[in-house]
């Protein structure tokens, strides 16, 4: 559950005037994606699952957003960004190389695949990737820094913040057509927006959020 917006669930508005048919259907489809890999093989999949947990750690007290499945679905559809930095190979290839290279780096450093490392070891390796310090031949010349910022962290973070659970966490009003909003000023909230739990006013926020429709 969201810490700042207790009991706010953007999906409680699903049947109301903030969600049109097309939004309902495409969000439903996103929530229903298969949880098993369809593009990546078993080894790549376990590495990806570990990477997702590093880039967006999720709380234990709610069902997990299936980040690896969302990335796998994007790979299956070969949905790149529509452009790429010339130093990176195309979308699928960048992911394939990156997953294999991080695994190779882990084996080199700890004699254990990436998924088998401790979280601290994984985080350290990723920090080195972000700094551009990883140069194992398995990278095939792809700069680890760019893979990290333009593919790995970029794609995982985007997948997460396109999911309704993340909207609850950040207090985003979510889909808003056709109703839109009325109160635009600072500290003004429409009744169908998340209420923030200001210190001392948590139960009030909880109450308001229960009535969001």
């Amino acid at each position: 559950m969201s810490r700042r917006y207790p009991e706010y669930d953007v999906q409680s508005k699903r049947g109301g005037p903030s969600w049109n048919d097309v939004t309902r259907q495409i969000v439903d489809a996103r929530l229903a994606i298969p949880r098993e890999p369809r593009f990546l093989d078993a080894t790549q999949w376990t590495i990806l699952c570990a990477l997702c947990a590093c880039v967006v750690p999720q709380p234990q007290n709610r069902p997990e957003v299936p980040l690896a499945a969302l990335i796998d679905a994007r790979l299956l559809a070969d949905h790149g960004d529509g452009y790429r930095d010339a130093r990176l190979p195309p979308f699928r290839q960048a992911w394939r190389i990156g997953l294999a290279a991080l695994d190779a780096e882990a084996l080199d450093r700890h004699a254990e695949g990436f998924a088998g490392l401790s979280r601290t070891q994984q985080d350290e390796l990723l920090a080195d990737a972000q700094a551009g310090d990883l140069v194992h031949p398995a990278w095939q010349g792809m700069p680890s820094r760019l893979f990290f910022s333009l593919r790995l962290a970029h794609d995982i973070a985007a997948a997460y913040y396109r999911h309704p659970v993340a909207w609850n966490e950040v207090g985003f009003g979510g889909p808003a057509a056709p109703r839109g909003y009325v109160r635009l000023g600072a500290n003004h909230r429409d009744a169908w927006e998340p209420a923030e739990a200001r210190p001392g006013a948590e139960s009030r926020a909880r109450e308001l959020n229960r009535h969001v429709r």
Binding site: W19, V22, I26, G82, R162, A176
Partner: peptide
């Protein structure tokens, strides 16, 4: 849709380098 991901259908996403 009111959705960042779905609406990518509006953009030029054929590859460019």
């Amino acid at each position: 849709a009111s959705d960042e991901e779905h609406q990518q259908k509006l953009f030029w996403t054929d590859e460019r380098v």
